[in-house]
């Protein structure tokens, strides 16, 4: 048999075609087989993040069950994801945050009390912030600061919470937390992410149940009177 000329044009083209088809089929099959598991992982990852934002401790095994137990509603508001959970009998709303850090994407979930104002808990994630510096946004120490802060002012405007260097004052009089030392750009990223993501939810956040709103006003008046008498 004559030896095949592996350098002819026809052979090269046929060879390339066969290789590409084999690889394409192989990858398509693997993707099909594994996609269910990957989707499950992706969902579980989001569920874990939401649990963290709700201050619920979980292990790798019970995360899925805990999520089912606490989170009742998984809906969207104007195309934005919105989760409704009940923790210790109180209703919580969980909103998604998305932004940009120093090296790549940062994201998170923020849990609000049913006044749609007070932060109940928060969770951050990042793609490639510097470990030990910007990467510290995921630590409990940084996240704890947000608890109990208000994201709206008395006029029901969404102002978010400012992330600022210790000693600086928030420009619009909103509540603030301390930025991470040595991670200015990541901290600014978190600040911008909170503002831009919460602004997207403005309609949902401002639409407050009358009763809750009035109650808040009454509390505010009482507080003011107390301050004056002091």
């Amino acid at each position: 048999m004559k030896k095949l000329d592996t350098n002819s044009n026809v052979y090269t083209i046929i060879y390339a075609t066969i290789i590409v088809v084999i690889v394409a089929v192989l990858l398509a099959v693997v993707n099909q087989v594994l996609s269910e598991r990957q989707e499950f992982n992706k969902k579980l990852d989001v569920q874990k993040q939401i649990l963290t934002s709700l201050n619920i401790e979980y292990t790798a095994e019970n995360a899925g069950d805990l999520y089912k137990q606490y989170v009742q509603e998984d809906s969207t508001d104007n195309g934005l994801p919105l989760f409704v959970a009940t923790v210790d009998g109180a209703k919580k709303y969980v909103l998604r945050l998305r932004g940009r850090g120093l090296w790549g994407a940062i994201w998170g979930y923020i849990a609000l009390n049913d006044d749609k104002n007070t932060i109940f808990g928060i969770n951050f994630g990042h793609e490639s912030e510097t470990p030990g510096l910007g990467g510290d946004i995921v630590t409990a120490k940084f996240r704890e600061q947000f608890k109990g802060k208000k994201i709206k002012n008395a006029n029901n405007d969404v102002l978010s919470v400012a992330v600022l260097k210790t000693g600086t004052l928030a420009p619009n009089g909103q509540e603030q937390v301390d930025a991470l030392a040595g991670a200015t750009i990541t901290s600014t990223g978190v600040n911008d992410m909170l503002l831009s993501s919460l602004i997207e939810y403005t309609e949902f956040l401002q639409e407050v149940d009358e009763a809750t709103y009035e109650e808040a006003q009454v509390i505010k008046i009482i507080e003011r009177e107390n301050n004056e008498t002091n």
Partner: peptide, 30 residues
């Protein structure tokens, strides 16, 4: 392997393997 496209063939082999590893990691070590 045809000499003229050998680098491309090598690249396809590597790319296929890398994609496989990446898919497996996403499924089992997310």
């Amino acid at each position: 392997i045809p000499m003229r496209i050998r680098i491309i063939v090598q690249l396809v082999v590597v790319a296929a393997l890398v994609t496989l590893v990446s898919e497996v990691l996403k499924a089992f070590a997310y």
